[in-house]
Amino acid sequence: MYIYKTKGICPPEIHFQLAGNILTGVRFVGGGCRGNAQLISRLLEGRELSEVLPLLKGIQCRNDTSCPDQLYQAIQLAREGKLREEEPITVYETPASYQRVAVIADVNGNVEALQVALRQPVETVFCLGNLTGPAGDNDGVVELARRKKLVFVQGPFDRTLSCTKPENREFLRRAPLYLRFQLGRCRVLGFYSGFIQELSGFSDFAPYSLELLMVSNLSDYLRNESVFSALETMTEQFSVDVVLFASTNEWKHVRLGKVDFINVGPVKEGGQFKYALLGWAREELQVSFETVKA
């Protein structure tokens, strides 16, 4: 994906992809006329550059340029190799909807901890990152995750610590950065925070960036309660009902506005195993932090 910082127009960024000479995924983000921008995106989707570039070039709106003209300039820079293609911030959306799930994080290569989590009486287990860790059996835990088809997102260790076996490294490399699933009527988002916004492909205006930035940059992972009023105001713009995140080794559940924020700590804590149990019952979200003795 290409991210172009615009000049002289309302949207601060244009995102797009090029597959050879085919233009896809055009998004004008962060401002401007959303309706027209969506129309332009739909009209351009999958079309050849030779066809669209003459249509975009030179259109005037303000400051001697326009959204189409800026897109033209961005595409030209990409073709000349002057605009770098960024690593996409990947999202995995589960096809199924759930009623009762367990969520773990920071497995840190602990095979026993993952085995315990996978034995819990739930429909599925999700891992919010750091399946691997500096002192763990990383190949062992990744092989178990592969066998059990564990759905997990990358944590910082999963990106930097390599397994010995290439197939395990590839499994980690392919893992998404965001997880989206449906729990009853709740739209749930999960991620391991603190590093995604440092990746070169991160944009403030990409899907789920708002939720991530509110958790990490604004509220310091819910530790700065003085900004909860502002955080609650911003939840009105959220695209999900539940935000699950890991990164601080803490366990916390806070409801602000119509959004539940759930901080998931490490699966092994002291001599115990711990996980977040999320359920949908009596038309309500149920959240508890469960402990299993070692």
């Binding site: 708002l210 930035l213 900004v227 502002a230």
Partner: peptide
């Protein structure tokens, strides 16, 4: 406030 720059400024001002 959707941007990192905006959040940084908000915190600098000690806004709530």
């Amino acid at each position: 406030m959707r941007t990192r720059e905006g959040i940084k400024r908000f915190l600098e001002l000690k806004a709530k």
